[in-house]
């Protein structure tokens, strides 16, 4: 228990905790927000959603949907890399402690 209290009080642990939660909620909010705006927007701007995307027959709404899918993949890869690196720092930090 005191071990855990020690870790919790460590400013380095707190720094990493804050960073991780910033990424966690930032990326979640970004993607879920993008989805909801795109999904609900379809009701009000349906004509624009069905319009051809930059000169090809693919409709705008579906093009943006595909972009959100691609964004999910890109942000997931970024998140995995960032947090893997943070975790490596964290382990180095903990080893210094012991």
């Amino acid at each position: 228990m005191s071990d855990e209290a020690d870790i919790l009080a460590d400013p380095e642990f707190q720094r990493i905790l804050t960073l991780r939660s910033r990424w966690r909620w930032g990326l979640s909010g970004l993607l879920i927000g993008a989805y909801l705006i795109w999904a609900v927007g379809g009701i009000y701007y349906s004509a624009a959603y069905a319009a051809p995307f930059m000169g090809i027959a693919l409709p705008w709404g579906m093009a943006v949907g595909l972009v959100i899918i691609a964004l999910s993949i890109v942000l997931s890869i970024a998140y995995v890399r960032i947090v893997n690196r943070l975790e490596a720092e964290e382990i180095v930090e903990r080893d210094k402690h012991q």
Binding site: R24, L27, S28, P59, G61, I68
Partner: peptide
């Protein structure tokens, strides 16, 4: 038609959300 994409995009976003919020 286009409405089916409400599902496919939601499914992909949901998995990214599971990664960010729950995995670790």
């Amino acid at each position: 038609g286009a409405d089916a994409m409400l599902y496919t995009v939601a499914i992909t976003v949901s998995w990214a959300f599971i990664l960010f919020a729950f995995a670790d």
